[in-house]
Nucleic acid binder design. Sequence first.
DNA 1: TTCATCAAGTTGTCTTGACAACTTGACCGT
DNA 2: ACGGTCAAGTTGTCAAGACAACTTGATGAA
Lengths: 252, 252
Amino acid sequence: MRLNASSPIPLYRQLADRLRSEIDAGVYTIDSKIPSENDLADQFRIGRPTVRQATDLLVRQGQLERRRGSGTFVKKAEPAIDVLSLAGTSAAFSNSELNAQLELLSGATLESNGHYCVKRRALVDDIPVLLETLHFHAELFPGLDQQSLTDRSLSALVKEVYFLEPISADQTFSVLMADAHYANVLDLPEQTPLLHVHRRLHFHDNPDALHADIVCRTDRFEFSQTLYPTHANSHASSKAGQQTQPLQLKPL
Amino acid sequence: MRLNASSPIPLYRQLADRLRSEIDAGVYTIDSKIPSENDLADQFRIGRPTVRQATDLLVRQGQLERRRGSGTFVKKAEPAIDVLSLAGTSAAFSNSELNAQLELLSGATLESNGHYCVKRRALVDDIPVLLETLHFHAELFPGLDQQSLTDRSLSALVKEVYFLEPISADQTFSVLMADAHYANVLDLPEQTPLLHVHRRLHFHDNPDALHADIVCRTDRFEFSQTLYPTHANSHASSKAGQQTQPLQLKPL
DNA sequence: TTCATCAAGTTGTCTTGACAACTTGACCGT
DNA sequence: ACGGTCAAGTTGTCAAGACAACTTGATGAA
């Protein structure tokens, strides 16, 4: 069993790719041990330092962890942030202790501005908590009106059907007063103050493909997040500028 | 010039520490080149792979970058998130294009609940934008009332005087109506809806040492942040669970 | 049955050596 | 003066080898 020594792709990257696809294929499951460095070196007819380079790469990508004296183990993958939902994933939302549910108020309808509009509402113990209105750029999401919006999360749909993954997302916080529409949907008096979160997703080459407005009541529920400062001497270096700041002040 | 081969600290870590302190001391400045791997190996009487392990460590910590064929260069340090301010740093706040200023309304006064209370207000073009009330646990911040709160950022003070750095910070978003106090401080009518951000900083062993309430007007200004999802196959792996989620819904 | 010891196995550190791929600057020709 | 070529220098990749430090499981003794 050999790697392709004449390929321009370095041997260690070939091995890393192979190990990664074996992990993805379930050959090695979460918390299970991959073959030892010496075994992999024998198996692939390469030196142990080359094996270490490959496993180093996967360790740094969070897929493997090494335990000195024991071996190298597959780590549980951290779920990527789902910036299209409130609580991480739609599944987590409906399974949480909150007895929360997400209902689709209207599927993708094409608007005159060239966007598909989707409305959904979240309830906790049958109390309406928030209304979310999503706008999908119709040219980038062709046929969205023909897609089922309840079979999987919106992020999964965007990724699997349209092959788009956001590289960043802006969230803007403001306050608004409930008009008749919001009062009706959220079942509260008009002129109740509501938290408004405008979210805009940025994809490679398509900075304004998808945006959402989330209007929430904060009288019975709170909306929070946790920030993690990365300090100068920490283990993992974040990419340049890619840390979430607490809040930035901008004029309207 | 030798490293201490009988120390339990591996040679590569000793070299990394030495290089780091030389960078910190200004021996090598931003964008300048450190000695080549071969030169460092000669200089310190170690092998070149050991030098690479040291520079690898600093590369992964974001302090060095390697340019193949050219050498190894000092990178500009990314500022850590300042979770005690709105716009990153107090200095950035007053220097921004916004003509913004931060004024101290009241210095650290000891309250009956065992916290020092600090109030400050932000203005843009002399328009009051927000009021921030900070509560410092008096036992953890002894003598805070004797400290100048305007010479440096609060984060710098907390770090340099009290040797505390937050490992995380919670932000909770809700809405409130301006009472007479807020109406006065922010110069707007009573019953104006305001955005309320409750921020709680967590330190090692001291989960509730410092919290803040920030009350903002959103009629003329918006408050935003940018999220950066880390995807499964990205270069840099974030620590387990340490990505900022968009928002999490919790009952009051 | 429990605990201590030891051997085998595994990762962590380090060495010397070599070639590949790239960068940069000097030199030469037009 | 400008452009091309080449040599020297530098990082990137890879190898074989060795010892240190740790883990784990098996075995033997109490």
